[in-house]
Design a protein around this nucleic acid. Structure first.
Lengths: 249, 249
DNA sequence: GTCATTTTATGATAATTATCATATCAATAA
DNA sequence: TTATTGATATGATAATTATCATAAAATGAC
C-alpha cells in the first residue's frame, strides 16, 4: 500500500484486491500482466516486480489519477476501459486515448515527466494493476531485455495515439465518426455489434468535434442504415460504406 | 558504410564524413551525439557504438528516408532542421514534426516498427549521424542505464509532437499561426527574429491548415503590426499579443 | 417513485474555413 | 539571361462546422 497513497482513489469501500500470495500459480494465471512479462524476466525478477504491484477494481467513472499529480506508478489494464483526458478550458475537455485490456495506461511521457499532464478515469468497471515506477526503472536499469520489451510495448500505445490523431485531423466530421466506430468494432470489440461505452460527448472529445455534430451524424448514419442503434448498442450494418466514408473524409 | 545502403541518399557526390579516427578527441568534441552519450556509456561501449555511426552532410531538400523503407538506423541531428512528413492524398501532406539540433529524428515507433510510416527530408543543410539500430538495440539489451537514457530522450520528442498536436487541435486558425511562430521563436531560434526555414505551404502542413489561410493570416498579422516580414525573415513585434491569440484560439 | 441533471435529438443561424480564381513575385534550372 | 515552376498575395464564393435554442428521453440520487 506504500505507493497507492499518492494516487487519489476515491470510492469507499475500496474494492482493492491485494495479491497476497505472491507465488500463487492461480494468481499467475489470472493476471495477464504477469503473463505478459514472462518472456523478459527471470523468476526472481518476476517475483521482485510482483512485489511492487497492486491490483484494484475501479468503478465506472472513478478518477484514477488527476492532471498534475506525480507519476509514481505504471498502470496496466487487466479488464475494462480507461480514458486519458485533459481539460482544455472551463467547458471543454479532450480525450487523448482509451486504454483497453492488456494495454498500459498512459503514454511514454511517464518516463520523461514527473507529473501527469492528463487525468485518468475508468470508462467502465475495470481491473487495473499499479506497478511502482521506481521498481520498473530499477528493473530497466538492470535488465536490458525488459527495457526493450517495455519500450516496444509502451511505444506502441503512443504510436497508436499519434497515428490516430494525425489520421483524424485530415478527415471531415463524417469521416471521424466512421473512423471511431470502426475503431471500436475492429480494435476493441472485434465485432460489428457492441455496446458503446462512451457518450456522444465523450466521442466528441475523442475526435475533436462538438457534441451536437456527433449526435447529428450518428442519427444520419442510422437514418441511412449504415448503423443500427438500440439503446447503447450499436451495430454496424454497412462496414464497407463506413470504411469508404472514413477514408474519403 | 554497411548500413547506409538501405537508406536512399540521392545526391552524388556524397558529402559524407567518415569518422576515421575513432578515438580522436577532436572528433569527440565536435560531435554532440557523442557528448550526449557520455554519461550512460563506458569508454568501450562508446567506442563500440561509435563504430556503428556515420556522419553526413545533407543538402536542403534531400530526402533521407522514405515512407515504407525499413528502419535500420537511428538518426541524430548535429546541425540543421529535418522534417518528418507523411503523404495524406495525391495533393496533401502533413508534417509530423521538425527535428532540430541535438534531437533524434523520428519517433519511438522506430523501436516498435520495422518500416517508417513517414518520410524524412532535410529542411535546410544539415549534419546528421546515422547509428545502426541493431547496435543500439544490442546496447539497450546490455546496458540499462543507456536504455533509460534513450527512452527518456526519445520519448520527449514523441511527447512534444503529441502535446503540440493536441494543443493545435483546440485552436482556431489564428491561434495556430501564433502558436507555430512562437514555437519557432522560443524553442528553435531563441529569438524573436529568425529566418523562417519553411514555406507557407509547409507551415500549413505542419498545423493542419490550407496554404491560402496561412498566407492570409500572416499578412494580417503583419498588417496589424504583430510581426514584421522581410523576405524570409520574421520578427515578432508583439509577443504578448501573439501569446494571447494563441491561447484564446 | 420523484426529481434534478444529463444526454440525446433536431432546427435555425452564425462563424469559420476551404475552395476557386486571378495576379504578381521569387526561385530554380537550362 | 530566359522560361518555367512554385510561392505569395488577395478577392469572392461555397461548404463545413460551431453555436444557440428548444424539447424529449435517460440516468442517477434520494
Amino acid at each position: 500500500m506504500t505507493f497507492i497513497i499518492n494516487c487519489n482513489i476515491f470510492t469507499p469501500p475500496k474494492m482493492g484486491i491485494r495479491m497476497s500470495e505472491k507465488r500463487n500459480s492461480t494468481g499467475c494465471q489470472i493476471c495477464s500482466f504477469r503473463v505478459m512479462l514472462f518472456n523478459a524476466l527471470e523468476e526472481d525478477e518476476l517475483y521482485k516486480l510482483n512485489a511492487c504491484r497492486e491490483q484494484f477494481l475501479i468503478r465506472r467513472g472513478e478518477v484514477i489519477c488527476r492532471e498534475g499529480e506525480p507519476i509514481e506508478s505504471i498502470i496496466y489494464v487487466n479488464q475494462g476501459l480507461i480514458k486519458l483526458h485533459k481539460r482544455v478550458s472551463e467547458t471543454r475537455s479532450q480525450i487523448i486515448s482509451i486504454a483497453r485490456p492488456h494495454d498500459f495506461v498512459g503514454l511514454l511521457s511517464v518516463f520523461s515527466k514527473t507529473k501527469y499532464y492528463y487525468s485518468i478515469t475508468a470508462i467502465e468497471d475495470s481491473s487495473v494493476c499499479f506497478i511502482s515506477k521506481e521498481c520498473i526503472l530499477n528493473e530497466i536499469r538492470s535488465n536490458g531485455r525488459f527495457a526493450l520489451d517495455i519500450i516496444t510495448r509502451m511505444s506502441r500505445i503512443t504510436d497508436d495515439v499519434l497515428e490516430s490523431k494525425f489520421a483524424l485531423s485530415s478527415k471531415n466530421l463524417r469521416g471521424r465518426i466512421a473512423h471511431i466506430l470502426l475503431d471500436f468494432a475492429d480494435n476493441i470489440y472485434n465485432s460489428n455489434e457492441f455496446r458503446l461505452p462512451v457518450s456522444r460527448r465523450e466521442i466528441a472529445e475523442l475526435i475533436d468535434m462538438r457534441t451536437e455534430n456527433v449526435i447529428r451524424i450518428m442519427s444520419e448514419f442510422r437514418k441511412d442504415r449504415l448503423i443500427r442503434i438500440n439503446g447503447h448498442t450499436v451495430e454496424i450494418m454497412n462496414p464497407e460504406m463506413l470504411r469508404k466514408i472514413s477514408s474519403a473524409g
